[in-house]
C-alpha cells in the first residue's frame, strides 16, 4: 500500500495508465461540457480580448465576463493548476528558468507558429488531433498527418539549430 501511495503521489505513472485516465476524463468533459476538451480556441479568445484591451484590434464582442463564464477558461486554468498541484504534491516544485539564450528564440518562434497553425486549422493537438479523430471527423485524421509532417520538419530544425 505504501508503495502504491508513493507512486501515486510522486509518479511517474506508466504511460498507459496516463492514457486510460486521460481518456476517462476526456469523455467526462464531453458529457459535462456537451463539447469536447479543447485548448486553443479559448486561448484565442483571451488573446483577442487582450489585443482589444491594449488597442491592437477592435474587438467586436469579447468581454472579460464572457471569458470568466467560458468553460474553456476553466479547463485551461485547471490544467495549469492541476500540473502545479501534481508537482507540489511530489515535492518537485521549483521555478525552472530559461538557461540558454537559444531557447528564448525557439520558445517565442515555436509559440507563434503553434498559435497561428492551431487557429487557421481550427484546433491544436487536443481539439484538432485527439478530439477531432475521436469525433470521427475526417479533418482530424488529415490534421494528424499534417502535424506528423510538421513535427518531422521541426525535428530537423531542432537538430540543426538547437542541439
Amino acid at each position: 500500500m505504501a508503495k502504491i501511495s508513493s507512486v501515486f503521489w510522486r509518479g511517474p505513472w506508466p504511460y498507459w495508465v496516463g492514457a486510460i485516465v486521460l481518456a476517462v476524463l476526456n469523455i467526462l468533459v464531453l458529457i459535462v461540457r456537451q463539447q469536447p476538451w479543447g485548448v486553443s480556441s479559448n486561448l484565442e479568445a483571451w488573446s483577442e480580448w487582450m489585443g482589444g484591451k491594449i488597442g491592437l484590434i477592435s474587438t467586436r464582442n469579447i468581454s472579460g465576463l464572457m471569458l470568466l463564464q467560458s468553460s474553456g477558461t476553466y479547463l485551461n486554468l485547471g490544467v495549469i493548476l492541476g500540473a502545479f498541484w501534481s508537482t507540489l504534491a511530489a515535492s518537485q516544485a521549483r521555478f525552472r528558468p530559461i538557461r540558454h539564450r537559444k531557447f528564448v528564440v525557439s520558445a517565442l518562434a515555436g509559440g507563434v507558429l503553434m498559435g497561428y497553425g492551431a487557429r487557421i486549422a481550427y484546433g491544436c493537438n487536443i481539439g484538432g488531433l485527439l478530439n477531432g479523430i475521436a469525433s470521427s471527423s475526417l479533418t482530424g485524421w488529415i490534421f494528424a498527418a499534417a502535424v506528423i509532417i510538421g513535427a518531422w520538419i521541426g525535428s530537423k530544425l531542432l537538430v540543426k539549430y538547437l542541439l
Binding site: 525557439s106 498559435g115 497553425g117 510538421g150
Partner: peptide, 24 residues
C-alpha cells in the same frame, strides 16, 4: 463534436503547429 471544415489551411496549419510544438 469537433467536426471542423477542411481546407488547405488545415494542412498548412497542422504543419506549422507541428514545427512550433517541437521548437517550443
Amino acid at each position: 463534436l469537433n467536426v471542423f471544415p477542411l481546407g488547405v489551411h488545415t494542412l498548412v496549419g497542422g504543419v506549422l503547429f507541428g514545427i512550433g510544438m517541437v521548437l517550443a
